[in-house]
Design a protein around this nucleic acid. Structure first.
Lengths: 189, 189
DNA sequence: GTGCCATCTTGTCAATGTCAAGATAGGGTG
DNA sequence: CACCCTATCTTGACATTGACAAGATGGCAC
């Protein structure tokens, strides 16, 4: 009796299949509440197939985080036409791609020094810094404006995702975030 | 050969010993990177002793979170004399009691519906809401001011703890947070 | 003194992450 | 076309972990 129905070697895009399965598992049970073996079971492969491609669990999460940062940078870049919307895009990405986001900002889960992470991370940080500069009242406030804007948006996102906000149950996070961002950053300059 | 040198039954404050060991372990390996058995080993008790007092791992983390919210509420209350300092106290607590904080805002790790959690949580939320009201320009802005202030402070804290801020390596988080809070919330009213 | 029961230990089990070794297939080389 | 070679995937094994069940201990009420 074989455990796998049809051991199909070289079926190609197993890496993608496993990452997708991981994203779904993270979405259901959080970034640490799933197992590699259950993942393999769902993907229809043997229990050690993930380890072959990603080395270990940290390796898989490193791949997830790297892909996440790249998608994140893309999403932020698409919003740069209207500077005010970059913060909204931040929130929207976190909610629309929650599994990515939850891994990305938990660096103890993956290898943050991996080159694939660093490049995507720098790109995302670049968009944030550029956008914040456009909102800053004067050049010497650039650093503080960046810090404040990032903190504001990231805090809203974290609280929303963790369910700490009373508005989390119903309500539209995007609209709420937009109001908050315009109010606070509008007052700043 | 016995595993435990001197099986000391009824030695009393084992609950405290285990919680303290858990806090230390969380500080070293994050809120999910430790094991109950390793904990028991360090505390000098058998591998199942923790389970007896706390039911399971979630139960232990529930106790940690409850204690954390109580200490958190205490710390915030002590700062209410100067409303601006409540936010700073938020940041200081998170950094000085990082293990508590990291568990508290990860509700999937514990039983958030536990009564011991709820009461302490409500007390902390009360202080935050009251303080934010004092900073609000007008009553109809109360809700938005609370949301903005909380997001700002929580975001700063999360980013600092995760090491995402360039300032995380050196720098004084408390002073930086104080500047940011005064700048942003000062502009709001 | 005797029974009771909270406290803690010991034993056990399935599940998990990781490593090592084997099986398969497709592509390049002669 | 035969050969082998390597990436891909499987199978097998092992230590560790969380959880449960059953046993041992000792203080306390009566």
């Amino acid at each position: 009796m074989r455990e796998i129905d049809q051991p199909s070697y070289h079926h190609g895009n197993l890496k993608r299949v496993i990452i997708d399965a991981a994203l779904q598992a993270i979405g259901e049970s959080g970034p640490a509440g799933w197992s590699l073996r259950e993942l393999a079971r769902r993907a229809g492969v043997s229990h050690a197939a993930p380890a072959h491609h990603f080395g270990d669990k940290q390796g898989l999460l490193t791949a997830v985080a790297a892909e996440g940062f790249a998608l994140f940078a893309d999403a932020l870049e698409r919003a740069t036409a209207d500077v005010w919307e970059v913060g909204v895009a931040y929130v929207r990405f976190a909610i629309d791609h929650r599994p990515y986001f939850e891994v990305m900002f938990r660096p103890e889960l993956y290898r943050a020094d991996d080159p694939s992470i660093q490049s995507a991370h720098e790109r995302a940080a670049g968009v944030l810094i550029t956008s914040a500069r456009a909102l800053s009242p004067s050049p010497e406030h650039d650093r503080m404006t960046t810090l404040a804007a990032w903190s504001l948006v990231h805090g809203f996102t974290s609280l929303w995702l963790s369910g700490a906000l009373p508005e989390s149950t119903d309500g539209d996070p995007e609209a709420l975030a937009r109001s908050m961002i315009r109010l606070v950053l509008g007052a700043l300059r």
